[in-house]
Design a protein around this nucleic acid. Structure first.
Lengths: 250, 250
DNA sequence: TTGTACATCGTACGACGTACTAAGTACAAT
DNA sequence: ATTGTACTTAGTACGTCGTACGATGTACAA
């Protein structure tokens, strides 16, 4: 057995930070990791994350499907790179001179805007995204909004995770509501015509008195069964109120 | 063209409430919707939602794959039925005689326990699950925890959605942390040995001073990079604090 | 007794991620 | 200048998925 000439698999972290050694032999590369990731993001924005398949993305780039594996070891790494790309390039509002509530509100809105602009990201985004440069820049910026509020370092991390969790779930819900509306191809009125009779029979006010009453009130208050933007605004106020005792104390 | 003998597709709502007409002709059914759903839930609990494929589930039930389509129109409807099954059968703690904070805390913990017992459900659960009997029973019970607190009907719905959103994201994060640990098959120590050098080089304290400081403090405080149960407890307290002003007012 | 609605199931289609292999390219070492 | 080798690109193929379609056989209604 002669010495194996194994090409070590590129690590996700190396990929995120672009620290892998570049090849000095062989044909010129026709693409770059950045080009692949940018095309993937654009495709996801246009047609959703489920449209981002290796075949489709390769076609978009004018290459054969398997060629992409030269740049990215697999699909999951591609998604991680896409997310970090977003985090690196997202807009971040100015925090200087704002009171704590406005500072925290600002970073929440920045994240929410990101997820609303790229709805696929809300579903793909894990609680602890891999430590790429974009994620680190985002984390750094967000933590700065929490400095000088009397929080310990550990509390700053806890607070931020809590806040971003709220933003993510709000964005997920909003994206899902949009997707459902688009997929059903049915207006709320049509839906009610189809399902109203059954629901009326089955939603027994004696069995579910509170649910029927509250559900009806909520449905009438918003013009649809679920108003994502209202839920975000409401939830953000509650979240800020929830942080106040921690910040005001002492 | 003779008159078509079309069998109308079963509607998801009809399926959830089991109001579809039962066949009076043809061979005896070898299964029931409930049996299919129960088997799917058990399989998902045992091996995760990605193990619940039509083929695998059919094998589990001793039937040919396509047979399942007699009972359930498709995969997505199956997942909806699985969720409603969980909601219908979940344990719900007693609320009688508790102060509002304990009441709200109780329903949050009930949901969290459900998601921790069935981790696949946290990922599959949408913000507004289809109005099945289980979902309605859950909604009714949860709303009762919010009665008599001086909230309007619309506010009760808003508060509940906010609370359950927090629970869902906490459960999602916890499940994902578990899954990542299991998948990497790498102890935290091993991971650090592999990636430590790169991270040390790339996490420049001059570029990310706050992130490095806080990240290190948080990593040391919990024994891992992410402590899901701690995040839930912390987040629940913040969420309750956030509801207090709405409830205490007036 | 017969027609029909239905359960069951085998086969097959078009997607998916990606492993494997072959072909060709351009630099490094000679 | 030549040759070896590391590399990019691409074609083919495997095993997975959800599920459409059509054949077969069953049991009740007419």
């Amino acid at each position: 057995m002669t010495a194996a000439t194994e090409t070590p698999k590129p690590n996700l972290l190396e990929l995120l930070w672009r620290t892998g050694p570049e090849a000095s032999r062989g044909p010129r590369k026709g693409l770059t990791v950045d080009a692949v990731v940018a095309a993937a993001v654009e495709l996801a924005d246009r047609e959703g994350l489920e449209a981002v398949t290796v075949r489709r993305l390769a076609q978009e780039l004018g290459k054969a499907p398997m060629t992409l594996y030269t740049y990215v070891p697999g699909k999951s790494e591609l998604v991680a790179l896409m997310l970090d790309f977003l985090f690196a390039s997202m807009e971040r509002g100015e925090l200087e001179g704002l009171a704590w509530r406005e500072r925290v509100s600002q970073i929440a809105r920045d994240s929410y805007s990101l997820y609303r602009t790229h709805p696929w990201a809300a579903a793909a985004s894990p609680s602890r995204p891999p430590l790429g440069p974009g994620q680190c820049a985002k984390y750094e910026h967000e933590l700065r909004a929490l400095e000088g509020l009397g929080l310990s370092d550990v509390e700053m991390d806890d607070v931020l995770a809590h806040l971003l969790g709220f933003v993510r779930i709000a964005a997920q819900d909003a994206a899902q509501a949009d997707a459902e509306r688009a997929a059903s191809a049915m207006s709320d009125q049509e839906w009610w015509e189809v399902n109203g009779a059954l629901l009326a029979k089955v939603l027994d006010p004696e069995r579910f008195p509170t649910a029927v009453r509250v559900g009806q009130a909520a449905g009438e208050a918003h013009d649809s069964a679920y108003d994502a933007e209202h839920a975000f605004r409401f939830g953000l106020e509650r979240t800020l109120d929830g942080l106040a005792p921690l910040i005001m104390r002492g």
